[in-house]
Design a protein around this nucleic acid. Structure first.
Length: 671
DNA sequence: ATAGGGTTAG
């Protein structure tokens, strides 16, 4: 109908909102000839040769084909040619044209198409154009415009609602997305839910903290018989484990009763891995490989299981998985490759991480970040900064995450000036506002370097609320530099944030003790006692021949404990001959010196090291995981052990890495 | 003739 009149006069610009952009559909005969003859896209020429201008379907097919071949601009140009050549082509070609505008994130083109849809009467009555239009606005990050258009659609069908809901998800408006399904959940009527809608609804419920949403949706899909649809149930599985329920058990229950496909296995493994249940993740992985019912492992499974290895420090399993990666030819894959890098770094093998990093074909921002973090964790600050420089040279723009890696590397290596430089460059040059993570690194870096006032000033200037890690960093800096006043302030704040961790009080009482403030030491000890706050028991883990051995302080439950203790005795003698003096400063102050020394020598990391030295292959790296920070005496002890035995020892606590080979360790004095 | 769709990486 009205489409014919649109052909001749150039489209008036939509009011105000249009941004300058190579508008693809100006009706200029010259341009039209260009579209059909220029060799800018040989593909385009190919498609256009096949177009029968008299058949509308022929045009829309050409637009859609160009789009799916990846040339959105050519698709838009062809759409413009279509409308001029045959006005009847508008109806079928408009939706793919809108998708092309979305793919090119060209809001200007999208708005012109919107106008065209309005003038031709296709909007809001044609549901095909309507859903594509919403899709376009969301893709161009204009959810408000999408909403405006959505509100004009009289009776939106499931496809339109799904387009709207998934668009909200894309723009991180999770509650808005869920809101579109809410009435339906409330009335228990599944009128609008089909497979695609259910997928979006569950993925929305995985991102909000509202309780019970997943279960209600679950009831709904059972009612309409979607509970045997693997895709839908997989998303449901995910939302049980995340979202408001956060219940891995519930997810596992779904997993056990459903008809599982690869994605189900991968999701469950990934969920375990992400929640730190490494043993469960690894167990489920081997179950999949053995009794998975013909399920083959793929890139996603390997990524997930590598994360579990990284978390558990399971280097041997990690190597096996890496071999599998190589066998499957997935070394060049960004996802898998980045996971391998992360696994090797967290398991203490930076050189292996670096080799794996070089194998990745198209490194993305997270691959680079993983490598920077890897060097940083090991105290190799200069290497980390070199990788960062390489990343910038490769043309990638550092983001929020990149700067966490960079600043963490500076803080761990004690690169004060570099840290200061990149912290300010981050804001000034890259326009990134620092978040808690960046502040955490800076407070740690400044604090260790003794710039306590600067660190405190930084906290006071923060635009976001400081978390326990930040005050904790300041507190341990106070221990190093003996600042009672700031320590008290930090503990006060920590107490408001985390009342259950007595570690902070132990640290404060040690600070008092070192300042000779015995009354305060007593006061804190009483406080800890009366409040019933307990320090979680410290333990150290060591992996040997695929088995993990766990040690607590003074542990005598290990079958080899007698040998371990006598080996440790001999080791300590040799260490003392080499100049090791037990650092009793980190032990509670009401013990006498002798008691302090015997308390120190049975620390879990020492037991673990002795056990590993007795049993491992000469020359291999000893890798220990500790659930808490390492005390200053164990820190020193490891250096001496390295010196006498020439063995590389790596201790990783839950967050951090301490690398003793070259005596480099920037860990503070903890407890 | 044309529309909407998650699980992996710091």
């Amino acid at each position: 109908m009205a489409a014919a009149s649109l052909m001749t006069p150039p489209l008036p610009n939509p009011p105000a909102m249009v941004t300058p952009h190579p508008a693809p559909m100006t009706s200029n005969p010259q341009r039209e000839r260009d579209v059909r003859s220029t060799p800018t896209s040989s593909l385009r020429a190919l498609f256009l040769r096949a177009v029968d201008p008299s058949r509308p379907a022929s045009w829309s097919a050409a637009v859609a084909d160009l789009l799916s071949s990846g040339d959105a601009i050519a698709a838009l140009a062809t759409f413009a040619a279509a409308v001029r050549a045959n006005p009847a082509a508008l109806l079928p070609a408009l939706p793919p044209a809108l998708r092309a505008a979305a793919a090119a994130t060209s809001l200007a083109a999208g708005r012109q198409l919107h106008l065209l849809a309005l003038r031709s009467g296709l909007f809001p009555s044609d549901p095909y154009s309507a859903s594509a239009l919403l899709h376009m606005y969301h893709h161009c990050s204009h959810p408000v415009d999408a909403r405006r258009a959505f509100d004009e659609i009289p009776d939106p069908n499931p496809v339109i609602i799904t387009a709207m809901a998934s668009g909200y998800m894309r723009n991180n408006l999770f509650h808005h997305s869920l809101g579109l399904f809410r009435d339906m959940i409330a009335s228990d009527s599944a009128s609008v839910i089909d497979e695609a809608a259910a997928l979006v609804a569950f993925s929305a419920s995985a991102r909000v903290t509202d309780r019970g949403v997943t279960a209600s949706l679950h009831a709904l899909i059972v009612k309409i018989g979607l509970e045997r649809n693997a895709g839908v149930v997989n998303t449901m599985l995910d939302s049980y484990a995340k979202g408001g329920s956060r219940d891995l058990g519930a997810a596992r229950k779904v997993f056990d009763t459903m008809e599982r496909d690869v994605v189900s296995w991968n999701s469950m493994i990934a969920l375990y891995a992400q929640n730190g249940l490494s043993a469960e993740a690894l167990g489920l992985y081997s179950k999949m490989m053995n009794v998975g019912g013909g399920i083959k492992c793929n890139a996603v499974a390997l990524s997930a299981v590598l994360l579990a290895c990284a978390h558990a420090g399971a280097i041997q399993m990690g190597k096996r998985i890496h071999n599998q990666v190589v066998r499957m030819g997935l070394e060049e894959n960004v996802y898998v490759g980045t996971s391998v890098v992360d696994m090797y770094s967290k398991c203490g093998r930076v050189e292996m991480a670096c080799k794996a990093f070089q194998k990745i074909k198209e490194k993305n921002i997270l691959s680079w970040s993983a490598m920077i973090t890897g060097y940083g964790m090991h105290g190799h600050g200069q290497e980390a900064l070199e990788v960062f420089a390489d990343m910038k040279r490769s043309g990638l723009r550092p983001n929020y995450i990149t700067f966490i890696s960079v600043l963490a590397a500076c803080s761990h290596a004690g690169l004060l000036n570099e840290g200061r430089h990149w912290y300010s460059a981050m804001k000034r040059e890259f326009g990134i506002e620092p978040g808690v993570e960046h502040y955490g690194c800076m407070v740690d870096l400044l604090g260790r370097a003794g710039c306590l006032d600067e660190a405190y000033g930084l906290i006071k200037d923060m635009k976001v609320k400081p978390d326990a890690a930040i005050w904790g960093a300041l507190l341990s800096a106070c221990r190093i530099h003996k600042n009672v006043e700031l320590a008290e302030i930090s503990v006060k704040r920590l107490f408001e944030l985390d009342t259950t961790n007595s570690g902070y009080y132990v640290l404060l009482s040690n600070i008092y003790a070192e300042a000779g403030m015995w009354k305060d030491v007593e006061r804190i000890r009483l406080l800890v006692k009366t409040r019933g706050i307990e320090k979680p028991p410290g333990y150290s883990k060591v992996e040997l021949k695929g088995y993990t051995h766990l040690f607590y302080v003074g542990d005598k439950s290990h079958p080899q404990h007698k040998e371990i203790y006598s080996y440790l005795e001999k080791l300590l003698e040799r260490m003392q001959e080499a100049g090791y003096v037990p650092n009793t400063g980190s032990v509670l102050h009401d013990l006498d010196e002798e008691e302090k020394e015997s308390a120190l020598r049975i620390h879990s990391e020492k037991l673990a090291v002795a056990f590993a030295l007795m049993n491992s292959v000469p020359g291999s790296v000893i890798h220990i995981i500790k659930n808490l920070r390492v005390c200053s005496d164990c820190h020193t002890a490891m250096k001496f052990i390295t010196k006498i035995t020439e063995r590389e020892i790596i201790i990783r606590d839950l967050q951090r890495f301490h690398h003793f080979k070259d005596g480099l360790c920037s860990c503070g004095d903890y407890w």
